[in-house]
Design a protein around this nucleic acid. Sequence first.
DNA 1: CTCATATTCAAGTAGATGATTGAATACTGA
DNA 2: TCAGTATTCAATCATCTACTTGAATATGAG
Lengths: 220, 220
Amino acid sequence: MGSRDAKNELFDALASVAKVLGNGRRAEIVDVLAQGERSVEELSSEIGQTVANTSQHLQHLLRAGLVDTRRDGTRIYYSLSSPSVSHLWGTIRQVAEEHIEHLEELATSYLGDRSTLTTMTRSELTDRLDAGDVMVIDVRPEVEFRAGHIAGATSIPVKELEERLDGLPDSRLVVAYCRGPYCVYADDAVRALGQRGIQAARLEEGYPEWQDAGLPVQTN
Amino acid sequence: MGSRDAKNELFDALASVAKVLGNGRRAEIVDVLAQGERSVEELSSEIGQTVANTSQHLQHLLRAGLVDTRRDGTRIYYSLSSPSVSHLWGTIRQVAEEHIEHLEELATSYLGDRSTLTTMTRSELTDRLDAGDVMVIDVRPEVEFRAGHIAGATSIPVKELEERLDGLPDSRLVVAYCRGPYCVYADDAVRALGQRGIQAARLEEGYPEWQDAGLPVQTN
DNA sequence: CTCATATTCAAGTAGATGATTGAATACTGA
DNA sequence: TCAGTATTCAATCATCTACTTGAATATGAG
């Protein structure tokens, strides 16, 4: 009791949770799984890796207890084992934003220049939802919308945005959201709408953060 | 924009925060620094590693932006660069407790059997502090008490406990706390007091968690 | 039963990590 | 200025990690 070896083992075990999230590809996997369950193949194309490699990353996450699996026919679906995993990933991102000085550059080179985008915080959006003077659109792929979305949002995947411009108001502000702060979909949507003269803004964060904050969601 | 390489770099950078905490020795360092600043030598003896090795771990933490340094004469003091780092470490521990199934065994083999210890949650303690029917003792080394402690607590480092039994009440409950849930000091104190017929309990968590929860603290 | 498909496993390799050792650097006090 | 102490640096080595490749396993459709 109180021995150095036992202490090392204990802290190694605690740190193992961080270790498994300490890889960019696994972090991406968790980021996607925060939107809902996915098969190995779907994940592999999301993260741009071979299926075999993706499977190995998933084994790491599984051994650490951060994901669960479910078999459906020949497919195996992975999901986060609890909302606290998504919360942890959010906390990691937050600390990274606060302490990694060149992060903004990296974000810009992936997402493009965001400085001209109108953004909205969660609390602003809740206020304006109460007031009823905004339309909220969920621009993620429809599966993700179906797995859970902000209460009152309409599903308009970015890919279908062009064909569905009719349904959008020209008087009310349109607020787009997607997977999270490092997701391109909402950026693309806001830019596209702006070019067509529709007033649009992006929610700063995405669905998982909204849910984690305990704000009203809708799951089917 | 939207390229795979840029996305990889971005997520690698986000994951780097987790990576640096994904080592047991560095996790221990953060755990200690959550109590206040420390010199390299102090840290090296805390984590049972050579000074050179400890220094290298500290360089990792420094490069990731998680710690700051301050020189005082020949010594260099390291501290957490913000409270959010301590918060992140707490979140990691929480997820580990929730998802690593053999963690309790590891904790028991380091801390001994805790099942007989009376414990108290933060909210219980705040209630009883309001009621005024408990005495709270901070059993960490006195430097840590001086760096910050629960408002109203008395400093009685475990090492001095024997000599200071006189100052303890025999009518009121004594609540001991220390660095955090994986710290032995409060366990040792509660056991020692119990053997002397003094009613004692340990606060489930420690000072950093109390502070992170926004509860009243006192810093000098 | 056989074939196609999804996933996992196993082996191999380049590169990263953590610990050790001994030397170099930086500051203090005499 | 010089000796003493705290910290960092550099080189080394065993081990681990991430990815690749190709084969093995498991399920469902026909």
